[in-house]
Design a protein around this nucleic acid. Structure first.
Lengths: 158, 158
DNA sequence: CTTGATTGGTGCGATATCGTACTAAATAAT
DNA sequence: ATTATTTAGTACGATATCGCACCAATCAAG
């Protein structure tokens, strides 16, 4: 049998958490004042997956509460990076669109990250990284699937 | 040379971010009300790395501002999971100690995570996971080293 | 249709994160 | 020794996250 022990998963998630913090710091250092990682993630998502998404759909994709998504979108809208329109197919819902300014910002940020990534890329072997990526995707899919239909035994009483 | 392209690193960090959110949700579902992941991380750190650490040291270890660490420790202290004492070797500093309650909570939380990890572990191959772990550690070390002495070109103008 | 349940979005309050500014202690410079 | 600089910790304010409650639109059950 080849199931990971609790300690293995623990160590794995621990490294994940640290890398997430460090990589987020790299990104946020390239964002204009007032914007943080979730703002950029939204711009990126709309570019890659297509505009005209409903906020609730994006909240689910990012695994955040819909109230958090409302707040993030409000920040992007106030700064003119996105536009919210009514959803003609559902009166409750809205649809999110990028503005030219939003598209431009995403491109500019990605450009500005190039030197960071080049510097870091020099220290990391491509082969190992590309071997790791499918494993991460597999783990992500597993966790995501687990989220729906999991054991719901109670939390520690504290 | 086999340097990763920007797109490879981008995809890598993207997966990291999603897994971090999902794994954090798993942990926080097992914590008593009022505690979140950073609280547990502190308890875990003190257990593994030893008690009697200074708050500033832990802030650096977790890559968070010292004000955030102050706040996290306050929450743990108010609930009786840690005790802060003066540092006899440095009048500016404090040292952080676990209480019995804090030690018990950590053990209890880890116990309560066992079924989650067992369920998830069934879906992930141990071999791939243990192969991935050193790569993640390598990336983490690279990013950490990069943090000190990096290029400081300006952020996007927005 | 009418009614009840569900769903998308938001207001609000509690807590979290983090930058700025400050204090007191320690250290460096002279 | 005196002074200047650095460092550990905290108070405070701005923004972020997120649960709860609510409304309006939709959908389901009859």
């Amino acid at each position: 049998m080849h199931e990971p022990k609790t300690a293995d998963l623990f160590a794995f998630f621990n490294e994940i958490g640290i890398i997430e913090q460090l990589s987020r710091a790299i990104l946020e250092a390239r964002l204009p004042s007032g914007l943080i990682a979730p703002h950029f993630t939204v711009l990126n998502h709309l570019t890659r997956l297509g505009e005209g998404r409903a906020p609730i759909e994006m909240a689910r994709a990012f695994q955040v509460p819909k109230t958090s998504m409302t707040h993030t979108l409000k920040g992007l809208e106030e700064r003119g990076y996105i536009a919210l329109r009514a959803n003609p197919a559902d009166g409750r819902s809205k649809l999110v669109y990028l503005t030219d300014k939003g598209r431009a910002l995403r491109a500019e940020v990605i450009q500005s990250l190039a030197p960071d990534f080049a510097r870091i890329g020099k220290k990391i072997d491509l082969k190992t990284l590309t071997e790791v990526l499918p494993v991460l995707q597999d783990v992500r899919i597993t966790l995501d699937a687990d989220r729906n239909g999991k054991n719901t035994s109670p939390a520690a009483s504290g």
